[in-house]
């Protein structure tokens, strides 16, 4: 009687242990290992990887730079969203609502083909005007901006980075706002009662606490940014996705090329999401 009960509970424990293991990670790792094995044994995979390597650097560059600009923009906008000044609050809210309401692909196209040319035209106008009153030579940099033959065009990678930055700036602004609002009112009151002004209280009391709380969601944003960066391929920016499209279209090796493209993204995102998980755990054991 006792024996059967014991073995039954052992069985339950074993089942629970088995169910608790990260099987998904094992499957991803096995798939990855299998593919790495095939890359070494399969010449096609080998040459695909050689072709896509350059795209890896572009993808990372676009992601890192856009993300750095986005969180800076997001922090400032987040502060604007909790501001009591109605002008600052409304400017910040308008920006967030507009950018969150647009598909990122549309933002990329709009920034690249509407805003950037318009800005260049304005700068051209300034350049030409200055030349007309003889302050600058007729072929000054301002007037020639956008002229492809002069090599003065705004690179499409730069336009893509601008678009991703302002898009994700709006997303991370909401993360920062939520983080700031999650800090109890008493903290601001205590800081102010000690004579600190609003900015000192923000800088020394509220933000240090808020930023710890928003690290995990900001990490998730970074992963999302990495994936979303594939959209810049529509501009012809030669990231992993764009190079994959080029390679598959010329070689007709669709299966193997997109296997490779998918795996490259997957390895990066799985590593990053493990990193986010570890940060989350460490923060939760740290308390507050």
């Amino acid at each position: 009687m006792n024996d059967t009960r014991n073995s039954a509970s052992t069985q339950v424990r074993l089942t629970n242990t088995l169910a608790g293991l990260p099987w998904w990670l094992l499957i991803v790792t096995l798939a990855g290992l299998f593919m790495i094995y095939s890359f070494y044994t399969d010449k096609t995979y080998n040459s695909i990887f050689g072709f896509l390597k350059a795209g890896l650097i572009v993808t990372m560059r676009v992601t890192f730079i856009s993300y750095a600009i986005a969180i800076t923009l997001g922090l400032l906008t987040g502060l604007g969203r909790v501001s009591k000044n109605p002008i600052i609050y409304n400017v910040a809210t308008l920006y967030v609502q507009v950018m969150r309401g647009l598909p990122i692909l549309v933002t990329i196209l709009y920034v690249s083909f509407v805003i950037t040319p318009w800005l260049m035209a304005q700068i051209n106008w300034v350049g030409v005007s200055l030349a007309n009153i003889n302050l600058l030579s007729p072929d000054n940099v301002l007037a020639k901006l956008g002229d492809r033959s002069a090599g003065l065009n705004v690179d499409f990678e730069v336009r893509a980075i601008a678009a991703l930055s302002i898009s994700y700036g709006a997303f991370s602004a909401e993360i920062f706002r939520a983080g700031i609002e999650s800090i109890g009112r008493g903290q601001m009151e205590a800081a102010r009662s000690l004579g600190m002004n609003y900015f000192q209280a923000m800088r020394h009391v509220i933000l240090p606490q808020a930023i710890r709380r928003v690290l995990p969601p900001l990490g998730n944003d970074f992963i999302a940014m990495l994936k979303e960066s594939s959209l810049v391929s529509v501009l012809g920016v030669q990231d992993i996705t764009q190079l994959g499209r080029l390679y598959s279209a010329s070689s007709f090796e669709y299966l193997k090329t997109y296997n490779m493209v998918a795996l490259m993204y997957l390895i990066m995102t799985v590593i990053l999401s493990l990193g986010v998980k570890i940060t989350e755990k460490r923060l939760s054991t740290d308390g507050f």
């Binding site: 109890g184 008493g186 903290q187 102010r192 009662s193 000690l194 600190m196 606490q209």
Partner: peptide, 20 residues
Amino acid sequence: INTVRREVGMVFQQFNLFPH
């Protein structure tokens, strides 16, 4: 307000120490 707050200490029901 900031000048006055500097001269006036306040103690709250919920302590409001800075946890970080």
